[in-house]
Design a protein around this nucleic acid. Structure first.
Length: 791
DNA sequence: CTAGGGCCTCTTTTT
DNA sequence: GAGGCCCTAG
């Protein structure tokens, strides 16, 4: 992340980082790379994408076609040919991870010049840098704070209660969501269409949005959406400012273009009016952020937005074996809104995608755990495997299992470091020091640790602050000289405000890490956790130490806080061999030898909620998510579904995802097919008779459709039902039709069977697809019929 | 003012 | 099954 204080902007030659040093190394690089050897190994399309520097260019890059390579090589090429200096290239990614990766790879190609690329980053971090440059044009001071979701919600709660709106009926979350949505669409309060604004609190949505923005200004704060929205406004209202950037950026590159929302699109389009050397890379089949306002349309109509745009397709897939690619391609072909690409595998067939059923989520976790250990025994590293879930609540089951097995794992995108309570508290102290007007931070820690300053006191402070239009901190200082509070809270407040004054002074001459330690100590914060008897207190103290340690990489407090608000992930232990656990969304852009995909059940994946809220478009997005999941795999993709899953703490029976039926038979192997597949021509299974309990979750159109299909039984009907679109049924040939490789069900009592793990045995009882078997060596076990064979 | 208990809702996905 | 909210007792 570029430190805002060192970003060269108005004059790059005196810039601390870019400038002379970068130019010198660019010269070195130019001679080193004069032969253009960085172009070696590129296929013709990739090469074309790298060499086409002038004018708008859209690179449609399917999964695993070397998208990042094209982007990084292109930047290297621009630098090597001297067409632009590092600080004249705007390169935008979606995630911090991607930005880091790109920096790293450019550095590998051309040396450390990339570190001198101040304008390589996420939309939000670049937006923040720009906004700090022109803060006054947005009515802000350059030191503005960036609120995260948590602060945002608390602020909105305050507004709602001030407006006497029943928070039960109109939860703050919803308004936050709505405001976010408006900002994603580039709408300021006055732009919100009346119908839209009416959605919240009987038509007050619009006003509340305005009130929220006003509060933000008073707090000298912005939220994530503002980081783009405000620059857009500035560009529109101040042609001179926009002109500076037009001169500045000779080349612009955008990664994951399919996931840009309207605001990002507007922002880009304004900037691209300059040199027009805009290169966007994306894949419409991997657009998975529609729920966050992403517009696939942006990519679909690129050539209209940027006339004369050249389009290059990358279709050679170097990542996945043919079976995996075949399965993924066929699945995604069920979507109708797509540009359409034909991914061509470059390697061998490899292993088929497997589909396995499990009795419940616990068994699913166990069998994945077993499989991991199998692969590990064969020499695969844990680093080469990942489990991708639809929703993060699915992770717990796996974590439990891995702890039991003693398998190392890492969670990406789980509860994050900077979102932990103790970290947020500590940060709140630092924020108060950095900016005494940070009311939200002040409110967070005013009574942490307990100082006898409860709601009543805070309420008083708030009244004073609002009345006098001052910050809470100032109000607190004032109140210690007055009689408005009882002696006890007054004294307590006096100590606190004096501390802050002292800390703020110390901040000028002290190293920020030492300052942090001092503050945490003197405020009694660390002491609070030392006294805490709960089991995780020690971990929290450890986290606080880690926080201070992580501050070292930053020059000052301000730089650190900026990093924290924008880069909400802390890099963690990459060098341990551990299996990765994350959501499908988090997996975008990553690849692993083996990918486990659990939870392919109707309602969970595709998500019922998405389908209810967004209908057919939602379903297509879910399907793209499935596509992203499968295409993360180089060698092995293993899909699982469970017949029973606990949702909201209640066991619910579930049926296999429709996506399973959309997989092509030729690339897929059904490994174990207990419950859900066994009714298809093999007689009845007890699970078919299980009615869902409660009914609330499944009392939905999607579920009912699924039930009907299930009752209809025949697979051709199913296929037709699923594929009905464009007005007529459309049956895709060769789909996965319940062909279990196991001779499922119908074992007789007394029959001899063989089990991979337990060996030979005799069937004692049959209950649906579950067998009680007396194994010769292993004793009596209950097993799923598909786990045994006839000897 | 705090602590503790009961009750409620909720669960996608993220910069 | 967990976190947030409200109420009551100290």
């Amino acid at each position: 992340m570029a430190d805002p204080n060192t970003v060269p902007f108005f004059d790059d030659d005196d810039a601390p980082q870019g400038g002379i040093a970068a130019r010198a190394s660019a010269g070195v690089m130019r001679s080193r790379m004069s032969g253009g050897d960085y172009l070696e190994g590129l296929n013709p399309e990739q090469r074309d994408a790298v060499l086409t520097l002038d004018g708008p260019l859209l690179v449609l890059a399917g999964a695993g076609t070397g998208k990042t390579r094209v982007l990084t090589t292109r930047i290297a090429h621009i630098l090597a040919t001297g067409r632009a200096r590092p600080q004249e290239i705007l390169a935008v990614t979606f995630t911090n991870k991607a930005a880091r990766e790109m920096k790293h790879r450019i550095a590998t190609l051309v040396g450390d010049v990339a570190t001198g690329m101040p304008w390589l980053g996420t939309f939000h971090s670049i937006g923040a840098t720009m906004l700090r440059r022109h803060a006054e044009l947005a009515g802000l001071k350059p030191s503005f704070t960036i609120l995260d979701t948590d602060d945002q919600i608390r602020l909105i709660k305050q507004i709602l209660s001030a407006e006497n709106i029943d928070e039960k009926r109109w939860p703050a979350r919803n308004l936050a969501w709505a405001i976010d949505g408006w900002k994603n669409r580039g709408l300021t309060p006055k732009d919100v269409p009346p119908g839209d604004g009416a959605l919240f609190a009987n038509g007050k949505g619009k006003e509340l949005y305005a009130a929220y923005q006003e509060r933000l200004r008073v707090l000298n704060a912005v939220d994530f959406g503002d980081l783009l929205l405000e620059p857009i406004r500035i560009f529109r209202d101040h042609a001179d400012v926009l002109a500076i950037y037009h001169q500045r950026f000779k080349f612009m590159l955008v990664d994951e273009y399919q996931d840009t929302n309207v605001a990002q699109y507007l922002w880009l389009r304004l900037l691209a009016q300059g040199p027009r050397n805009l290169c966007c890379v994306g894949d419409d089949d991997q657009s998975i952020y529609g729920w966050r306002g992403a517009e696939v349309d942006n990519i679909l109509r690129f050539d209209k937005d940027f006339p004369g745009a050249k389009v290059i397709r990358l279709e050679r897939n170097y990542r996945s074996d043919a079976h995996i690619l075949g399965a993924a391609s066929h699945l995604i072909s069920h979507n109708k809104d797509r540009l359409g690409k034909t991914l061509r595998p470059q390697g061998e067939d490899g292993e088929r995608v497997t589909v396995s059923g499990a009795w419940d989520s616990g068994e699913e976790a166990r069998s994945i755990g077993d499989e991991i250990e199998n692969l590990q025994r064969k020499g695969d590293s844990l680093n080469s495997m990942a489990i991708l879930v639809r929703a993060s609540f699915q992770m717990r089951e796996f974590e439990d299992r891995f702890v039991t097995l003693g398998l190392d794992y890492r969670v990406i995108g789980g509860p994050r470091f900077y979102e932990r309570q103790e970290i947020r508290d500590a940060l709140a102290y630092l924020r108060c020091i950095n900016s005494s007007a940070d009311d939200l931070a002040f409110e967070r820690i005013v009574n942490v640790p307990k100082r006898g300053l409860g709601d009543a006191t805070v309420q008083t402070l708030n009244n004073i602050a609002r009345g006098a239009r001052i910050s809470l901190m100032e109000a607190a200082r004032m109140v210690t000289d007055s009689e408005e509070l009882k002696p006890k809270p007054r004294e307590s407040l006096r100590v606190l405000t004096q501390n802050f004054t002292r800390w703020a002074q110390a901040a000028d001459h002290m190293k920020h890490t030492e300052l942090a330690e001092m503050v945490l100590d003197e405020s009694g914060y660390t002491e609070m956790w030392r006294q805490d008897r709960s089991p995780d207190a020690a971990g929290r103290l450890e986290n606080l130490k880690e926080l201070v340690r992580s501050m070292e990489q930053f020059e000052n407090l301000q730089g650190f806080l900026e990093h924290v608000s924008l880069v909400m992930d802390a890099e963690s232990g990459e060098n341990v061999d551990a299996i990765t656990l994350m959501t499908l969304h988090g997996a975008k852009g990553l690849e692993y030898d083996t990918i486990f995909l659990p939870g392919w059940e109707e309602g969970l994946f595709p998500s019922q909620r998405t389908m209810d809220e967004h209908g057919a478009a939602g379903l297509e997005e879910e399907r793209r998510l499935a596509y992203v999941g499968i295409t993360r795999a180089r060698r092995r993709a293993k899909i699982y579904f469970a017949t029973n899953r606990r949702i909201h703490g209640q066991w619910q029976s579930s049926i296999p995802s429709r996506f399973l039926d959309e997989l092509p038979e030729e690339h897929v192997e059904v490994v174990e097919a207990p419950a859900a597949f066994s009714n298809r021509g093999f007689g009845e299974s007890r699970f078919d008779r299980l009615e869902p309990f409660g009914g609330s979750t499944y009392d939905t159109p999607g579920w009912q459709r699924a039930q009907q299909r299930k009752q209809a039984g025949g697979f051709q009907e199913r296929g037709a039902g699923f594929n009905a679109r464009r007005g007529g049924p459309m049956v895709i040939e060769g789909e996965l039709v319940a062909k279990s490789t196991s001779n499922a069900a119908s074992y007789g009592i007394g029959e001899r069977v063989f089990h991979d793990k337990f060996g030979y045995g005799e069937v004692l009882e049959v209950e649906g697809n579950k067998l009680l078997v007396a194994f010769d060596k292993a004793g009596h076990k209950r097993v799923i019929d598909s786990f045994v064979k006839r000897p």
